[in-house]
Design a protein around this nucleic acid. Structure first.
Lengths: 206, 206
DNA sequence: GCATCGATGTGTACGATGCCCACATTGAAG
DNA sequence: CTTCAATGTGGGCATCGTACACATCGATGC
């Protein structure tokens, strides 16, 4: 009894509560937002007592940080999976779309990853750095040295900002394809690599 | 007695609790982060009972939304105050720096403004739209029509992303001047208007 | 086989919070 | 001076995070 979730253990002991708690938290996060997520609710969803989580995570923040870290890892995998295209523009845009798609797929986790609930936790920071490193690697293979750092920061910031705007529905409620198209347009425009590269200057005619 | 904060009223009645609560919340926000901010603590700081705020704000979210709205208004004023420079680049960079400076000046309020605690509240959205409109206006005066929308979205997203990264100290702990310089570099690089506009291509030599 | 022990889960408890209710106080209008 | 609506107070409830003591179990040594 009591097993609402995946319990490999038998009755009293759960088997792998550590992971099960993350799964439960994930399930609840994508339903409601973080901040509304209570540790007790996670425990309930996992079918254990309110205090069981404390055997695996120091406190609520640690659990959230673990979840955020998992999120950064998955985001990193998606980023690493974009084909090293021939055109630098296409590669950057593909990575931007991958990140935005991840945010749209997991709004709760994404907000957690970039929210303030666990942003200062070492686990979150480490996982975040790993994901950024993947972007930095790609940028380094594309851009000349002096531009690498600003581009890395700028692209990361731009993509995060776009994801936030989309999640908060501040850019309407586009479909996935529409969102990707929007991301492409914005990235191209910002980087000055518009559809017609021979556009009349950066800002337009005077 | 009981008057820890600006109380224009006499004893029982406060005078202007509505505004005083915002001030108290602001003071507490810049100390601790939002999410840690409790309505009761705000009431305590204002020197009233825990339930007094409910006479002026429907619930906690409404108070936070009012504070966020005030933040967007001030941010908008700063944005509107940047001199309509001769060079479009300089103007955009000045606005970007103004926004980032605001974030650094009021970390708590900034996180509130873009956090999920009250992002869906109508007051927050209205004030946010007003601030964005100011940016849109400037962009419209600078860029050609087809690029206005992507530029507005992209610049807003980029600046917000930069602010977030800076607030979370993910870009080190620069001084104000260093932060502004960083913003300028990143914006210039992203927009392709580097110090030497005749740089060898967007990404560098192949 | 069986006792033992560390790891893991439970139960109880405390302070704090958001918010609902009924009540108290007040300044201003009649 | 009375009355009333606006405003602030106090008590109460469900929930939360988490500290403490206790219960239960699987592996380990004999």
């Amino acid at each position: 009894m009591w097993t609402l979730s995946t319990s490999t253990g038998s009755g009293y002991h759960h088997g792998d509560l550590r992971a099960a708690l993350l799964d439960s938290a994930l399930a609840l996060l994508d339903t409601e937002g973080p901040g509304e997520l209570s540790l007790r609710a996670v425990a309930r969803h996992a079918g254990v007592s309110p205090n069981a989580p404390y055997r695996h995570y120091r406190d609520k923040e640690a659990l959230l940080a673990a979840l955020a870290a998992r999120g950064f890892t998955e985001l990193g995998e998606r980023l690493a999976a974009v084909a090293p295209g021939d055109a630098p523009d296409a590669e950057v845009i593909a990575m931007a779309c991958a990140a935005v798609d991840y945010a749209l797929d997991h709004p709760g986790v994404y907000r957690l990853m970039f929210g303030q609930a666990c942003s200062s936790h070492p686990d979150t920071i480490a996982a975040s750095d790993a994901a950024i490193a993947i972007v930095a690697e790609r940028i380094a293979a594309i851009a000349e040295p002096e531009r690498r750092e600003p581009l890395r920061i700028g692209i990361w910031a731009l993509v995060h900002g776009l994801s936030t705007l989309l999640l908060d529905e501040r850019l309407g409620t586009p479909t996935r394809a529409e969102a990707d198209a929007l991301v492409e347009t914005v990235v191209r425009t910002m980087l000055g690599t518009g559809p017609d590269v021979s556009a009349p200057g950066r800002w337009g005619a005077p």
